[in-house]
Computed example of a mutant assay.
Amino acid sequence: MTLKIDGIVSALRSSRSALSRTVDPNGRVLDLPSPREVSEAVSGITSSLFPRRYGGAKGGLNGELDYFVGYTLGKALEALRAQVVRELRFTASLNGNELDDGEAVALSIAQDFADGLPAILDILYSDIRAAYDGDPSAKSHEEVLLSYPGVKAIIHHRLAHALYKLGVPIIARIIAESSHSSTGIDIHPGAEIGGSFFIDHGTGVVIGETAVIGERVRLYQAVTLGAKRFSVDENGALVKGLPRHPIVEDDVVVYAGATILGRVTIGRGSVIGGNVWLTRSVPPNSNIVQAQARSETFDGGAGI
């Protein structure tokens, strides 16, 4: 006795075709970026940035490390370029366009991304130092690099953000969500984040697409930098791309559970206390805390 699935296959095909956009008007199948292959490329790129710590590279000579980095990075970038071609062709098809020069455009994007890696590494070093300096339990820079979820999240974000700016938002989002699933930290790749950034503990942190974060900012777990409301057009559809998330200026600390919503500005040097709900801008050097709980006793019916 065997299961009967022919009808189910047919029904699934009908349901799939109602939403599927992976076949262009000429009937050609469009390959989407592969999350698995994107993740493998990111792993190779990360190994190239930190060859001894993440890549497991052996040997103490610069020549040996350079060979490892060159081989690993070249392989990873070629894998990434192939995924960029897929996204570019898919996006062009959605817009009703042909993409005859997809290979050349993807190569240019991959090269621009590669050219930016030294600057990304420099800012990541500032993030690692911020994590070490900001946590009294940290014993070494290597410890925070290898084990802190906030550091892992910002590594992925720096790479995803660079690709987002280069015009491949699907791949950028795949990278961001891969990090989100393993760290519990949700950073949209569009968010602008300055150097020396530290997320302590991290679980439940949410940073929206249009958030702008300055230098030397520290967040704790369960902080949300979100949108207060979403604008809609005359048809009721969401208007995308509008600035709707907070601006957090330099040297701000936001403690656990705080929620900051809307295009508000948190002034430089401010401290936002735990579990604060904030939907307005605050000037530099503000100290925002919850209202104090009030306890009252009513005896003999007094106050009723």
Score class of each variant (00 low, 15 high):
A162D: 01
L94H: 06
V105Y: 04
Q83N: 11
H180A: 14
I120R: 03
G236L: 06
E40V: 10
T72Q: 13
P283G: 07
I175F: 01
F230I: 14
G300M: 00
H188F: 13
W277H: 04
R129C: 00
D122Y: 04
L99R: 10
R268P: 15
R36Q: 03
R129S: 00
D200P: 15
R28L: 06
L49C: 01
I128N: 00
D100V: 15
M1W: 08
S43T: 13
P243F: 00
S126W: 01
K152Y: 09
R53L: 11
G274A: 05
R89F: 11
T224Y: 03
T22Q: 08
P136N: 05
S281P: 12
A57M: 10
A138E: 03
D133W: 00
A79C: 12
R129P: 00
G202A: 10
P284A: 15
L30M: 09
P246T: 05
G262M: 05
V217H: 03
P118F: 00
S137L: 02
R53N: 02
E87R: 15
N235W: 05
H156T: 04
A160Y: 05
V151S: 04
F68E: 11
I175V: 14
R13Y: 04
A41M: 08
L238Q: 11
R21G: 01
P284T: 09
T265E: 11
L159C: 07
D251T: 00
K75A: 11
R268E: 14
N287K: 12
V212G: 11
D299S: 07
A291W: 02
S48R: 05
V212Q: 15
N275T: 01
Q290D: 00
L242T: 14
Q292T: 08
I155T: 12
Q292P: 12
T46N: 04
V276N: 01
T210E: 13
R216I: 00
S108V: 04
L73F: 09
R129I: 01
G96P: 06
I128L: 09
D122H: 04
A191G: 07
A18W: 03
A227F: 02
R53A: 12
V168N: 02
S17K: 03
R129L: 03
G204H: 05
P25D: 02
S15F: 10
G59C: 06
L117E: 04
F298E: 03
E296W: 00
F197V: 15
Y71A: 12
L145P: 01
G208F: 05
I185V: 13
A222L: 08
A176V: 13
K240Y: 06
T210K: 13
D31K: 07
I170E: 08
L12F: 11
G301W: 03
G208S: 07
P243D: 10
E98K: 15
R16T: 07
S14R: 11
Y148D: 07
D299K: 10
D200A: 11
F298C: 09
E98L: 15
K228E: 02
K165G: 07
V289F: 03
V84T: 14
I123R: 09
I187H: 08
S182M: 13
D135V: 09
S20G: 06
Y164K: 03
T72C: 13
T259Y: 02
D250A: 12
Y132E: 04
A18Q: 09
V42D: 05
D251Y: 02
I8C: 02
S126I: 01
K75P: 00
L261C: 11
V84N: 09
L3N: 08
S140G: 05
E142F: 02
E215Y: 15
A160C: 08
Y71R: 15
L99S: 07
P283T: 01
D115M: 10
